[in-house]
């Protein structure tokens, strides 16, 4: 990892952001980042269960998945993919701004805040698009399991499409919850940036938010082709 190259090793001089039980910022930032990577591993494993369920469903009912996926909006999914990819870039810029920021500099803090706002905006756009997608599915009865009523709305999908929509809603729903949590974290980091907490002396918080956000992005990058682009 690059913490040793970027972190100002302030051994000897006092860094107010080092907690009492750490010796120096290098140790603290290293611990924070290792913890975040481990957390991301647990997130991946949690989603992996759902991916497994998806693959089993697809293996058992390939024709049904093919038929049902046609009703997902490729346009909406495509827009959201672009939005999230762009937000990953703005997030990366926010991290970079923190890494090179000078302590106490209002200008540098404003830069971090600008990129965080852009990322938040993208997350919002993503959820709005998702909202319209979900409402369309609700309207046409394309719902999970026992709530599935699309056949009453005149849609003839072969096989057991309620399973596909069950998996679709759980996977995108859990992903959506992660987007929401990510927005909450970004607001918190934004407030801390407003207080001028982040600079090259202390940027682990921004960096970990970035890592989390990239994972949210990454999960979507897999969800999009698997659910929307089956054919």
């Amino acid at each position: 990892m690059s913490d040793s190259t970027h972190a100002a090793h302030t051994d000897g001089e006092h860094n107010p952001y080092v907690a009492h039980h750490f010796d120096n910022m290098g140790q603290q930032a290293g611990a924070a980042k290792l913890g975040m990577w481990l957390f991301l591993a647990t997130e991946l494993l949690m989603f992996s269960g759902l991916f497994l369920a998806y693959f089993i469903c697809r293996m058992w009912y390939p024709d049904m998945v093919l038929g049902a996926h046609e009703y997902l909006s490729k346009t909406a999914g495509g827009i959201n993919t672009c939005v999230l990819l762009f937000s990953s870039w703005t997030m990366a810029m926010a991290v970079r701004s923190a890494q090179v920021g000078k302590p106490g500099s209002k200008e540098d803090a404003a830069k971090i805040k600008k990129y965080l706002l852009l990322t938040l905006l993208c997350a919002g756009v993503f959820l709005v698009v998702k909202y319209f997608e979900y409402s369309a599915k609700f309207e046409h009865g394309m719902l999970p399991g026992k709530f599935y009523t699309a056949h009453l709305h005149g849609y003839e999908i072969e096989g057991l499409p309620h399973i596909f929509f069950g998996i679709y809603f759980i996977m995108t729903g859990l992903h959506g919850v992660h987007v929401l949590v990510g927005m909450g974290i970004m607001i918190w980091i934004y407030l801390r940036a407003s207080r001028g907490e982040f600079s090259h002396q202390n940027y682990a918080g921004v960096e970990n938010t970035g890592l989390y956000w990239h994972l949210v992005d990454l999960v979507w990058i897999f969800l999009f082709p698997l659910l929307y682009l089956v054919k």
Binding site: A41, T42, E43, L44, L45, M46, F47, S48, G49, L50, A53, C57, W60, Y61, P144, G145, K146, F147, G159, L160, H162, I163, G166, I167, F169, I170
Partner: peptide
């Protein structure tokens, strides 16, 4: 490494109870 998989498993049981998605139910495929 193991606990997240339990988390998603019991979450699916929970969802299955309330939404009846049918992933674990042979009657629904």
């Amino acid at each position: 490494l193991a606990t997240p998989v339990l988390a998603i498993t019991v979450l699916l049981v929970f969802i299955e109870r309330f939404l009846g998605i049918g992933i674990f139910d042979p009657a629904m495929g």
